[in-house]
Amino acid sequence: MKTSNFRTRTTLTAMAFGFAASLAAAQSWPAKPITLIVPFPPGGSSDALARSITTPLSQTLGQPVVVESKPGAGATVGADYVAKAKPDGYTLLMGAVHHTIATSVYKKLPYDFEKSFTPITTVALVPNVLVVNAKSSATDVKSLIALAKAASGKLSYGSNGNGTVQHLIGTQFSSTAGVELLHVPYKGSAPLTTDLLGGQVDMSFDTLTPLVQHIKAGKLRALAVTTAKRSSTLPDVPTLAEAGMTDFNQGTWFGILAPAGTPKEVVAKLNAEMVKIIQSPEFKKRMEEIGAEPVGDSPAQMAAQIKDDTAKYAKLVKDAKVAID
């Protein structure tokens, strides 16, 4: 009996020391710069959102929060990098809905998006918008569909890469409208927008953030948003549903995650500081400027969103027969 009690006391003491050490580490965190990996090239929605939150976060945490771009393979290169990073809170990922799609699109992923990461918070939801070059003869969705039917598979749309939400919106649009479109994958919004402005690609279903300035400048023409309701940034632009295409409610969320195993105290601290920033008047004003809707949820809520979207997009991927080795 005495031996059993001794072992129990020893185990409890060890647990207490372990908890104390973990708490001490969390209280001293961060002790060095933090890197936020953006899995797309600079210039897109993820980059804009990352920089919008890292500047005030650096001031709050007292350490630099550096944005580093690691694009490629539909945002999976950057995700893989973070999944393999040390789970100490110093390497984070600007994740997106694209990662829930990649789970079904890629036959072999070196990580499991639901198991390899610890969600921190969703930063914002950005509506996707169907745009064409201002020189296009398409002035609304109906005339675009007519143009696509006449072009016989030659009308092109760009996306942020194979298996991204823009790609799937394009396949859903093609199927619903009964037209054949040529898909042109890019590594991110910046090169896609450049080609869209230059006329190298006919249209896109990209997020609003990299497009809003060009729409307002009259260089691009917005035909519809892909979400269930209109964007407050473009209130005069109809939804695809209003344009006669049912079952469309696709937007793009962006959120921050850490490698699985990151201390709960560090995750809680990051969530608290980030949500405080996201709910601030300054951040909300910035989101209005770039066409994004601030969120700022809990790790559990973000995890539930990831789980739901993974199942939702698995069906769309299967229906669209999209697969990448």
Score class of each variant (00 low, 15 high):
residue 11 T to N: 13
residue 103 T to E: 09
residue 50 A to S: 15
residue 53 I to Y: 01
residue 147 L to R: 10
residue 99 H to P: 03
residue 83 A to D: 02
residue 137 S to G: 04
residue 199 G to C: 11
residue 198 G to R: 08
residue 6 F to W: 11
residue 198 G to I: 02
residue 226 T to G: 08
residue 164 T to F: 06
residue 317 V to Q: 02
residue 243 A to M: 06
residue 253 W to Y: 14
residue 97 V to R: 13
residue 271 N to H: 15
residue 104 S to D: 06
residue 9 R to G: 01
residue 60 T to R: 13
residue 302 M to F: 15
residue 245 M to Y: 06
residue 103 T to S: 15
residue 56 P to W: 00
residue 165 V to P: 00
residue 215 I to F: 01
residue 320 A to W: 02
residue 207 T to L: 10
residue 231 S to H: 05
residue 64 P to G: 06
residue 295 V to M: 10
residue 189 S to R: 00
residue 60 T to E: 09
residue 297 D to S: 10
residue 206 D to K: 07
residue 152 S to F: 03
residue 101 I to G: 13
residue 223 L to M: 05
residue 249 N to F: 09
residue 239 T to V: 06
residue 179 V to E: 04
residue 189 S to T: 05
residue 83 A to Q: 08
residue 3 T to H: 12
residue 36 L to H: 06
residue 3 T to R: 11
residue 151 A to S: 12
residue 211 L to I: 12
residue 72 G to H: 03
residue 21 A to H: 08
residue 111 Y to W: 12
residue 92 L to S: 11
residue 137 S to P: 07
residue 277 I to F: 09
residue 39 P to D: 04
residue 173 F to C: 05
residue 279 Q to P: 05
residue 199 G to K: 07
residue 79 A to I: 04
residue 179 V to A: 12
residue 119 P to R: 03
residue 181 L to H: 08
residue 147 L to N: 07
residue 86 K to V: 07
residue 41 P to C: 14
residue 22 S to M: 11
residue 197 L to R: 15
